[in-house]
Nucleic acid binder design. Structure first.
Lengths: 232, 232
DNA sequence: TACATATATTGATATATATCAGAGTTGATT
DNA sequence: AATCAACTCTGATATATATCAATATATGTA
């Protein structure tokens, strides 16, 4: 985890300006800019660790990260994937002094960390900002909960189709993309076993629904994939 | 859903006073009191309906309610149980104009409904209140998400044990209680089939872990139940 | 009371998923 | 080049869960 203050990075010009921080005054935004730190994380590096103190708000600018949870029995669970311009770990940031999840880069990442107390202060002094933040938190948690509930209804084929669809349509917005996570991680993300992930991917390939070359996946038959996602 | 203004119910003396509304001034609390409505809902009655406009913040005072979701394929999913002094439907209230879930009484309920715009106004004008509300929302969503993730890891026996434990320890705080939901509803809550709920309950009874008399359940062997909850 | 309707229960069977075993593949390190 | 570890893949088998069928029990209602 390297750090770089990058004075050239002005929060006002950042992608976040348009969403959560849109209601801040110029003065407040300046304060934000001078109280943030800029970081890099290489693929595999830990951005935040479960059960360690929350230092600040983490905003993912570039790359992908996974949110994971290590269970008492040692089993790893991936809760979700964070994409650029996401608040990460927003869910638990107000309910606990510690991160509830691990945040781990699954692609090389750039992210900002904004001081916790500054944001708390902004909430108290800027009601519109507080409201915008509430909306954002509500959206994030709603989306995550909805995704988990959707997944629970599906059986394995449907879940695998779901996750391929997700990366193709939501993350990379292309029918051909390089899967950023291993088969094991897919299994951890959609609550199944590695062998079955592999098996079903092979099945999809055999049925000409997808093409697989190394880590690259190409969706050949989106309609069939979508059907499986909905009815599999 | 009957309505009753009950002038004798002063928000300042309500259970909520101590949690979310603790940071309000007396004047603000007065405004709250005069802008809330008081309601009853009999067991089975709908308090709020999925995809209908959000009227206000619903605070459950007495009774239990279930949060449900009707899926495209008609399958019903219970997301969670709301207990007295809970905000209900808090998750999506800021992210959508419509309720994302149904709220249905599973016991006779009393609840308050506070005008949406008033709360929004309080957020903008009272930073400490905004912060408290953020914390509460964060807690609620964290708890719900954690519960879903916990359930996903378990197989059927573990899930059934989980839910009996939940009602005994969290809701009724007694080893003997009357189950407020049907077998079907248990199945919808922990994502399994009615027949298997029944089967596993019978199994628990046969193994002298619980006793069943009609809707009444008595936890006879809490240790064994807890073991199954954790390792089943 | 009698009827219709939802719920509860159990057993037999089919299906879905996990587990186990083994072999091929890749990537990093020495 | 050799080695190791993690990942990928496939087949055989065991286990968990869903489905189907049938009956019993409750619950509400005309």
């Amino acid at each position: 985890m390297s750090q770089d203050f990058r004075p050239d990075h002005i929060c006002a010009k950042c992608g976040f300006r348009s969403s959560v921080f849109s209601k801040l005054t110029d003065e407040q935004l300046d304060r934000l800019t001078s109280n943030k730190t800029f970081h890099f994380a290489k693929k595999g590096e830990i951005v935040a660790k479960q059960n360690t103190p929350i230092k600040g708000f983490i905003f993912l600018r570039v790359g992908l990260a996974k949110l994971t949870r290590t269970n008492p029995d040692g089993r790893e669970q991936i809760i979700g994937i964070a994409t650029p311009n996401d608040f990460v770990g927003l869910l638990s940031i107000f309910s606990s002094k510690n991160y509830q999840y691990n945040i781990i880069a699954i692609e090389d990442c750039e992210y900002c960390c904004v001081d916790y107390n500054l944001v708390i202060n902004l909430i108290s002094t800027n009601g519109d900002f507080a409201k915008t933040l509430l909306e954002k938190i509500s959206q994030v948690s709603d989306l995550m909960m909805g995704t988990r509930l959707d997944l629970e209804l599906r059986q394995l084929r449907g879940r695998v189709a779901f996750i391929i669809f997700y990366f193709g349509n939501e993350v990379y917005k292309s029918h051909k993309f390089s899967l950023p996570i291993s088969r094991r991680e897919i299994a951890e993300l959609i609550d199944m076993r590695v062998e079955n992930v592999v098996r079903i991917l092979s099945e999809f390939r055999r049925d000409n629904i997808i093409r697989i070359e190394g880590t690259t996946i190409e969706i050949v038959d989106p309609e069939k994939l979508h059907w499986i996602k909905m009815h599999g």
